[in-house]
């Protein structure tokens, strides 16, 4: 009789088995993003007791619950504001926000630009799937011009955000964009994101064939990935202002990697200075 030995998946410890199966559609890129994230955690041997994952509302918003660390699933648009409270209360924690384009840049856009401006040391990973997937595919802040969604049935007339440009202009100290096709680069980039001190941001262009793709001539995950393969060009440290996503061109790579004192550090230094002055 042959015995089958059951091996635990090497990443099992990073995920909450009780929360499986996940809610994501076939062909969705969110699993790839979560995979790249735990890959980075594993390579870094991250202390999971010191990591907090926060997300907002949307398909990728479930990622916080799937990650086996302290995690919080906030209201729509508010993960960065919540994460700001966590980070300032306990600066020694690594605080990561994983959320979607609608959550972070439409309803939560104000929180994003201000957290970046303050340079709070939280790390933001945005799954950009070009639409509101969870509510059935409405137009969002990154929907390409002319794209069909359930609320742009005649084609989108809103200009989309260029997220890497927005992040860079708002003061983020690390800014990168990858697609879910660039799995290795994404994992390496997430590692860097976690190693940086300041407000750091990665946009992950992610396929949504079931909701977005099927209305836009990309019915399968493979077809969406094929678009990413054809259109993406790696141009590290190119001008983020010129990195708008178009059907023909998706510029990926790192755009910003600079050092700037974080809010937490300035707060800490200020407190030390005040204390010293009161002694003198």
């Amino acid at each position: 009789m042959t015995e089958t030995e059951a091996f635990e998946h090497p990443f099992a410890k990073y995920l909450r088995a009780a929360m499986m199966p996940h809610i994501w559609c076939s062909g969705c890129g969110n699993g790839i993003i979560l995979n790249a994230f735990v890959h980075a955690l594993d390579e870094m041997q991250m202390d999971l007791n010191k990591l907090v994952v926060v997300s907002g509302i949307g398909c990728i918003g479930r990622a916080a619950g799937y990650t086996n660390v302290d995690s919080f699933h906030t209201t729509h648009g508010r993960p960065i504001a919540f994460a700001t409270g966590v980070k300032l209360a306990k600066p020694e924690l690594e605080v990561v926000v994983i959320s979607g384009d609608g959550d972070l840049f439409a309803i939560g856009g104000n929180h994003f630009i201000h957290a970046a401006r303050r340079n709070i040391g939280i790390k933001v990973i945005c799954a950009n799937n070009f639409n509101y997937g969870m509510t059935g595919g409405q137009v969002g802040p990154t929907t390409p011009l002319e794209a069909l969604t359930t609320t742009t049935p005649y084609g989108n007339i809103e200009h989309p955000f260029n997220l890497v440009h927005l992040a860079a202009a708002s003061g983020a100290t690390y800014v990168a964009r990858w697609t879910t096709l660039h799995v290795r680069m994404l994992a390496i980039s997430i590692k860097k994101l976690l190693q940086r001190e300041g407000f750091s941001f990665i946009e992950v262009v992610s396929p949504c064939p079931e909701i977005f793709g099927r209305r836009n001539k990309m019915r399968t995950g493979l077809e969406m990935m094929e678009w990413f393969r054809k259109a993406s060009v790696i141009e590290n440290f190119s001008d983020p202002a010129k990195a708008e996503i178009t059907p023909e061109r998706i510029v990926v790579g790192e755009f910003v990697d600079v050092e700037k004192p974080t809010y937490e550090k300035l707060l800490h230094d200020k407190m030390a200075q005040i204390l010293k002055e009161s002694e003198d």
Partner: peptide
Amino acid sequence: KIGGVYVQMEDEIASIAAVIGASYA
């Protein structure tokens, strides 16, 4: 002066969200 945090947020939505975050921390 007493080792606490004051942060001025971008609006009241962010303020209460940050308060909940700090409470959980």
